[in-house]
């Protein structure tokens, strides 16, 4: 009996010990996090909340020092952590990406616009915890293509605008040639009338029928063009609006390109910098002793 009791007591105290230890580890994790926040040591916060990313990107080591179980302790307060970390991160991004203008959507969540010009585009959102941009795919692709088109000396919408302008010219020509068509129609009608009155030898009847058929076809062709001309004004106006929208987009992208070139020299450099953003930022935190904070 006593043995059993003793065994049970031992087991019990072992379990208690283990639990205390486990809880203590968790407490230590949270305490370290709290301390890091108190010391404004953002670098350490980043390391604590995502050890795997930290070791992969910063230490560039394959062996993860991730403590995922403890990290999950703060999963439900990621917005609060994000809000805290955004302070220094946004200051850093303001210097490194001066053309991105950030706007808080809700706690810990930020989206950004490209540029401060008229009707600038919403270009993506910021993942504060991962220190990375999530670009709007469509806009990013347009920018990438615009850079690629540099080689051809073209802007993104050059071809579309050219084809719209051609259409507009054709429509205008259709409007301008109304008088000419009217004369032409009159001529065809007269000819038809003349043919109808003409008396021909039976063996020539087929030829006459053919001629008549041709004239009728020509007339309907002209009438068709008249109808098109009537809608041409509206189409030209629509066409103008489209060209304006495309020119506006080209102008916007032009400014975006200029901004990137001014800061990074090329689109490739820009993309490369985006890839190393996490590492660069942590390095900057170390170099500047946590930016705002000097008591690391």
């Amino acid at each position: 009996m006593t043995n059993v009791n003793q065994v049970n007591a031992q087991k019990y105290s072992l379990a208690a010990q283990q639990l205390s230890k486990t809880v203590a580890v968790k407490i230590r994790y949270l305490q370290t996090l709290a301390q890091a926040v108190e010391n404004k040591n953002d670098r350490l916060v980043y390391q604590l909340i995502d050890g795997q990313r930290y070791s992969e990107k910063v230490m560039q080591s394959k062996h993860s020092t991730a403590d995922t179980k403890n990290e999950s302790l703060v999963d439900d307060i990621s917005d609060t952590i994000s809000q805290y970390l955004s302070g220094n991160l946004l200051a850093y991004l303001h210097e490194t990406y001066p053309f991105f203008y950030f706007e808080q959507v809700k706690k810990g969540l930020f989206q950004f616009y490209f540029g401060n010009w008229w009707d600038r585009k919403l270009f993506g959102s910021l993942d504060v915890l991962r220190v990375s941009f999530e670009f709007d795919k469509a806009e990013y692709e347009k920018l990438r293509r615009a850079f690629a088109l540099d080689a051809e000396n073209k802007r993104l919408n050059t071809d579309k605008i050219a084809s719209l302008s051609d259409q507009a010219d054709q429509l205008q020509a259709l409007i301008d040639s109304q008088g000419q068509r009217d004369t032409e129609k009159e001529k065809v009608r007269l000819q038809l009338k003349k043919n109808a009155q003409e008396k021909v030898m039976p063996w020539e009847a087929a030829k006459l029928r053919d001629a008549k058929q041709q004239l009728v076809e020509h007339l309907s062709e002209l009438t068709e063009q008249d109808e098109k001309a009537q809608t041409a004004y509206r189409l030209i106006k629509e066409n103008e609006d489209q060209v304006l929208a495309l020119s506006k987009e080209d102008t916007l992208i032009g400014y975006e390109k200029q901004s990137i070139i001014a800061k990074f020299g090329s689109f490739e450099n820009f993309e490369a910098r985006n890839k190393t953003l996490y590492r660069d930022y942590i390095a900057d935190l170390i170099a500047t002793k946590g930016r705002v904070n000097i008591n690391e």
Binding site: D119, L244, T251
Partner: peptide, 8 residues
């Protein structure tokens, strides 16, 4: 569109 025109 008038402001867009100005922009361009």
């Amino acid at each position: 569109t008038i402001l867009d025109k100005l922009f361009v």
